[in-house]
């Protein structure tokens, strides 16, 4: 009986039953958090540092200081021979690995803490800056990239005209254009948007043209025998025909745009969530750094889930897109 159930769990390309399916999806999040908690809360797991609670007779130890375990025991053995006060401490992790609860608290307080300086921005303001940069970069890229991609995927003429150059250009790393973008566009949002544009656009044209090419050619033939000519073939068959796939491409590309965000925001005057992260890292508030990084992940996955849900509304004829 156990073998049959194991076979069910690991059957090649067979769906699990709904309940185990749900549980395993939840585990996908629970397991990494569990692992993180183990390393944070179980004192004998890793914990390479010692947090000093009482410096004792060691002159350079201070309360709350983190020292290497080796150093701590070295000082301890040194003092054990003499009759001086021994330092006290408990195992700790390096400052760059805060415990889950610390990050959770930081997650909340990051929004409620006033910025250290007047001129600095609240976290939600920084986030909003980032979202705007992403939005404009991705929007402008799509505005041009999607039509070009569809043209290239539909007409060989445009495919030959655009694709060889784009194929070359997409190998140029977007951040390499940082200095140029600043020189042309100034130091504020414009160069950052430009970097996201460059990072997205060239991939986008190629991905979209590929999607357009994958449209079943017999649908075009059927439309032709029904009297459709050039323009209506494009707008009544190609465009609606690839729409669900195009939508899925856009979801993936939006994810890529986020990966360019951090680099883009370092260009010119650092801004947005990146500014927040670098600033907090400078103050060694790694709990805040973690919170900010997670925020990006949460925004990303929430956007994607919403888009996936909307996709199912938009394209009711696409059964398989339900699990894309």
């Amino acid at each position: 009986m156990s073998t049959t159930s194991t076979m069910q769990w690991f059957a090649v390309r067979k769906d699990l039953r709904p309940r185990p399916r749900f549980i395993i999806s939840v585990m996908s999040f629970v397991l990494p958090i569990l692992l993180w908690s183990l390393f944070s809360y179980v004192p004998w797991l890793w914990h390479p540092k010692v947090e000093i609670s009482d410096p004792g007779a060691v002159s350079y130890f201070k309360q709350g200081m983190l020292v290497d375990k080796d150093l701590f025991y070295q000082e301890l053995t040194k003092l054990e021979d003499s009759a001086m006060a021994l330092p006290q401490g408990k195992p700790a992790n390096p400052i760059y690995l805060p415990a889950p609860h610390e990050v959770a608290v930081a997650f909340y307080t990051a929004f409620t803490t006033e910025p250290k300086r007047r001129s600095e921005k609240w976290l939600h303001e920084s986030l909003w800056d980032s979202i705007q940069v992403i939005f404009w970069g991705f929007f402008l890229s799509s505005l041009i990239g999607v039509p070009l991609g569809i043209m290239a995927g539909t007409y060989d003429f445009f495919s030959r005209l655009f694709e060889p150059f784009i194929e070359f250009f997409r190998y140029l790393p977007a951040p390499a254009f940082g200095a140029l973008a600043v020189a042309i566009l100034g130091i504020h949002h414009a160069p950052k948007i430009a970097i996201i544009f460059i990072g997205t656009f060239f991939q986008q044209v190629l991905v979209v043209s590929n999607t357009a090419r994958k449209l079943d050619p017999s649908l075009l033939e059927a439309a032709q025998t029904l009297g459709a000519k050039n323009k209506s073939l494009l707008f009544k068959v190609v465009v609606p025909g690839i729409l669900p796939d195009l939508y899925r491409d856009m979801r993936i590309l939006l994810g890529w745009a986020w990966t360019y965000l951090i680099v883009a925001e370092l260009i010119g005057t650092s801004s947005g969530i990146t500014w927040f992260i670098t600033q907090q890292a400078r103050y060694k508030n790694f709990d805040n750094v973690f919170a900010a990084i997670m925020m990006i992940g949460i925004i990303g996955i929430t956007t994607d889930l919403i888009l996936a849900w909307l996709g199912r509304r938009f394209f009711p004829w696409q059964q398989q897109s339900a699990r894309a």
Partner: peptide
């Protein structure tokens, strides 16, 4: 042209 209708083996209905 519309003077010749065609039916294909693969149905070729527009899924959308």
């Amino acid at each position: 042209g519309q003077d010749r209708g065609m039916v294909f083996q693969g149905y070729t209905l527009f899924p959308w």
